[in-house]
Every structure is written in C-alpha cells, then in structure tokens.
Computed example of a mutant assay.
Amino acid sequence: MASENAESLSGKLRLAYAGLVVTPLFWAGNAVVARSTVEQIPPLSMSFWRWVIALAILLPFGLPGLWRHRLVIRQHLGSMLALATFSVGAFNSLLYFAAVSTTATNIALINATIPIFVALLAWLLLGDRTRPIQVLGIALAVLGILVVVSRGDITVLTGLDAQPGDLIMVAAVFSWGLFSVLLRRQAVPLPALTFLTAQILLGTLVILPFYLVDLMFFSGGFTVSGDTTLPLLYVAIFPGILAFAFWNHGVHRIGPSRAAIFMYLTPVYATVLASVFINESLGRFHVLGGLLILTGLVLATRLGRRPPANPLSE
C-alpha cells in the first residue's frame, strides 16, 4: 500500500512538472501568435474575442459558482471591476497593441519582468520590506529592460526613438503589477474557478465599448477564416484556460516558489518559436538584456519574498 501511494505521488509530481514545463510554452506562443496575426486581426479584436471564446468554454463550469456566490460578487463588485480592468482588460489589450510594432522576443523578455514590477509596486504602494539583494535585482532587471527597449543603443533612449511597442509592453506589465497589488489589498473570498469566470466576464465587458468603437471607426474588424479562427482558439484555450489549470496544479503540488522558476522559460521558448515560425532574429542586445533581466529576477524573487504571479498575464 505504501509503495502504491508513493508511486501515485510520484506520478502526480511528474504531471505537475510536465504542466509547468508546457505552461510557459503556451505563454510564449501567445506573444508569437500576437505578432504573426497583426495584419489579420486588430489588437482589440484579438483581445475581445479571445476572452469571449474562453468565457464560452468556462461558463458551463463557472456559472453555478457565479450564482452561488452572487452576494459576495455584488459586495465586492467595485474591487472586482478594477481587478478585471487591469488584468483581463488592459494587460492583454496592451500586449496585442505592442505586437503591432515590436517583436515577439521583446514582448516575452519584457513580460518576464512581471515579478519585478509586482515587487516594486508592492514596495511603493503597500510598504513591503525590500532587502538590498532585491533592490539590486530590481535595478538589474530594469537595466535589462532598457537594453532591450534601446536595442543596445543608448542614443535610442536619449533621442526618444524607442519602438512604440516596447513602451506599450512596459505599460502592460505595469498594469499587471497594479492588478497584483490590488489583488493583495482587496482580496475577494471566492473559489478559484468562480473568481476566474467573474474576472473574464467583467473584463470582457470592459473591453466591449472600446472594441465596438474600434470596429466601427478604426479597424473594421477582421475576416473570419482558418487564418484568424485558429489563432483565436489557441490564445483562448492554451495560454488562457490550460495554462491557468496547469499553473495552479503545479503551484499546489510543488509550491509557488519552485513553480515560479518555470516562468523564466517563457523568453527562451519565445525566442525559439519566433525564430522558427516568424523568422525573427536574435540580436546581441536580446542576449545581454535577457541575462540582466533573468539575473535580476533570480535575485529579486528567489532570494526574497515571492511576489504573486498569475497565469492570466499571458
């Protein structure tokens, strides 16, 4: 019996690690798909329909929880609306806007700094204690971002000639940092599936008026075809629902600190996928900036208190 229990536990751990290995692959795929479909699907259309599809899949499972906890949702509606705005609404929309004018590799590298922005904002807004080693890590990661945004040329920054997409991606990561800090300050007592369903529902409603304005006066939407439907299904199912499920299972089995290490695979996967599928080349500034960012992440998170991470960021 003990041997069977040990084998069962070992199997569950292997499954947890396997899920954590493929989760950053899904997140990296989100950046590559966003970059590869900018000509076919406008950013707000991608953001809106991604969450509509995800909501349609989740709703049959999450609707009973929404009804059962409707009083809690009503009591915390203001907080939940703010959380949905910064996460589902702003973060993902900004990420897709960033893809119009920057590379998938840059998106993934800047996106990898989410724990840094969370730690920095928690220090500024919540008064979290920050150890000297964490300050060094934050400084290195910020320096890495500057290397990536400037493409290794300081005159790009001094001449205000940075790629708009890089700056938009920094704004996206900042938005996720605000979401994470608000999530800690205004915790909502809901089960995970109910909370996720409510967040996606509210976030989709936040995006809706902007999507309609964009549809009628700017982009005109997109043509439904295999070239547009398949990418939408991917970003809804894989970096959305499956990554969420795998991430939470991994955190439950091996703990948040060890699980968070797998986040560092995202830029690696993105670099390979972007090279294979959309012919993006890797520059020396990517390597230097990536090393600075990853070193900063290790110092600021592994040697200090782990800031919260959430798979909705992809």
Rank of each mutant, 00 (worst) to 15 (best):
residue 255 G to A: 03
residue 16 A to S: 06
residue 43 P to V: 04
residue 79 S to I: 04
residue 204 T to E: 04
residue 305 R to H: 13
residue 261 I to G: 04
residue 243 A to S: 13
residue 142 V to R: 02
residue 285 F to P: 05
residue 271 T to H: 13
residue 46 M to N: 07
residue 232 L to I: 03
residue 32 V to M: 04
residue 135 V to G: 10
residue 57 I to N: 00
residue 69 H to R: 00
residue 299 L to E: 07
residue 11 G to W: 13
residue 174 F to T: 08
residue 312 L to E: 11
residue 247 W to E: 04
residue 285 F to M: 09
residue 8 S to K: 15
residue 250 G to A: 09
residue 181 V to S: 09
residue 193 L to K: 02
residue 101 S to K: 05
residue 108 A to H: 07
residue 311 P to D: 08
residue 280 E to F: 02
residue 244 F to E: 00
residue 152 G to N: 05
residue 81 L to E: 06
residue 313 S to A: 14
residue 104 A to R: 07
residue 101 S to T: 11
residue 298 V to A: 13
residue 269 Y to N: 05
residue 154 I to W: 15
residue 113 T to S: 07
residue 279 N to V: 09
residue 252 H to P: 07
residue 171 A to E: 01
residue 220 G to L: 01
residue 299 L to W: 06
residue 56 A to L: 12
residue 190 L to K: 01
residue 145 I to N: 10
residue 220 G to P: 00
residue 154 I to Y: 13
residue 60 P to H: 05
residue 102 T to W: 04
residue 98 A to N: 09
residue 50 R to M: 03
residue 175 S to H: 01
residue 179 F to R: 03
residue 109 L to C: 03
residue 120 L to Q: 02
residue 186 Q to S: 14
residue 295 T to G: 14
residue 312 L to M: 13
residue 20 L to T: 01
residue 264 Y to W: 12
residue 119 A to H: 06
residue 134 Q to P: 01
residue 9 L to S: 15
residue 240 G to T: 02
residue 107 I to F: 08
residue 175 S to V: 01
residue 87 S to I: 00
residue 305 R to L: 09
residue 199 Q to C: 02
residue 183 L to P: 02
residue 272 V to G: 06
residue 39 E to N: 13
residue 182 L to D: 07
residue 128 D to A: 12
residue 284 R to C: 12
residue 249 H to W: 14
residue 183 L to T: 12
residue 10 S to R: 15
residue 230 L to P: 10
residue 127 G to S: 05
residue 123 W to I: 01
